[in-house]
Design a binder for these strands. Structure first.
Lengths: 176, 176
DNA sequence: CGACACCTATTCAAGATTGACTAGTTGATA
DNA sequence: TATCAACTAGTCAATCTTGAATAGGTGTCG
């Protein structure tokens, strides 16, 4: 993969793994668990996908692996970043920081079909949705008490926005 | 696919296509073009994916197709919703309205690695990101002048939130 | 009317994603 | 010390996604 073709190609998962391997050598399972445990709230990266991505990145020469064994546990494939990987990382990071791709909101598909519901059932259903958002928000606000964190702040703002928007949609439904 | 297994399974694209076919019979190309032209700003559904989904839904019995031909144009596979499809649609719609799955924000991965940049390059790169968001916002605000629209409003709120968040992140970077 | 660009409609193959499976290790407890 | 649950580590097959290819039709401009 060339440096040029990296531009605006959706390589955020690769950036994530590469950046973690860059901090220190890691094996696949460890990486996947780390992302799940510490970043799972923000990013979705399944174990099998992580292995696939690591394989691809090794093939591309961004990282190299060595076999390692601790005690009598199964051998692990431990990855380390290469010089080329470091170059790619810097490239990906710059591109990714200055680029912006809007998120997509599949949950909002349903809003297109509110008119297909009998009576004014919509507002009632959306209230349950709002309740779920409020639950997520209070979890996040508890986490945020443990110190500030840009991603956590982002998520809180996002959920707050969803809630405000929903309120407005429901107002529009209730007073037609 | 059973009605039970529909709950919280990410069937928004199916809901979208099913809902459009429900409004009136449509063929694959037409559906894909409609989504691209009128909803492309909100939902990403590639042509080939639409065909795939329609095939799946037909196999599941939610829709049926007939061959149709207008003039001497290539034959089309025109889909119509079935009774079972109508049931599923109602089910999907209810579930989807009352459920909430937070969106994911791949663009924010890069923020994890701000410390890997030399100097205070970060703020500069993020300013370009902000500029892109502002450009998107002013397009949307022009569209919004043509009358209100819940999805458009959602998107405007979302981008505004991103911008506010970015400002805060950059403040944190500039005064450490 | 011939050539060329663009529109309609779908299929296909390559690649990405993930749930389920395999296979062993460790630790607790009875 | 046998058993069972939970943890570690990775692979695989089924499914999903999509860029590219196919195969025509229509319009227009000289």
């Amino acid at each position: 993969m060339t440096v040029e073709s990296l531009r605006s190609a959706g390589l955020e998962r690769e950036l994530l793994l590469l950046g973690l391997v860059r901090r220190r050598d890691r094996h696949g399972y460890e990486l996947a668990e780390f992302v799940h445990a510490h970043l799972g709230m923000f990013f979705d990266l399944k174990r099998a996908t992580a292995y696939h991505l690591l394989g691809k990145m090794e093939e591309a020469g961004w990282i190299v692996s060595r076999e390692e064994r601790e005690g009598r546990r199964p051998t692990r494939r431990v990855y380390a970043i290469t010089e080329e990987g470091e170059t790619i990382f810097q490239e990906l990071l710059r591109d990714s920081l200055q680029d912006f791709k809007p998120a997509s909101f599949p949950s909002s598909v349903a809003l297109l079909f509110l008119d297909a519901l009998p009576g004014s059932r919509g507002s009632e259903l959306l209230e349950r949705r709002a309740e779920k958002i409020r639950a997520l928000l209070s979890e996040l606000e508890a986490d945020a008490a443990h110190g500030p964190h840009a991603l956590l702040d982002h998520r809180i703002r996002y959920l707050t926005m969803e809630l405000e928007w929903l309120d407005e949609v429901r107002e529009g439904l209730d007073s037609p």
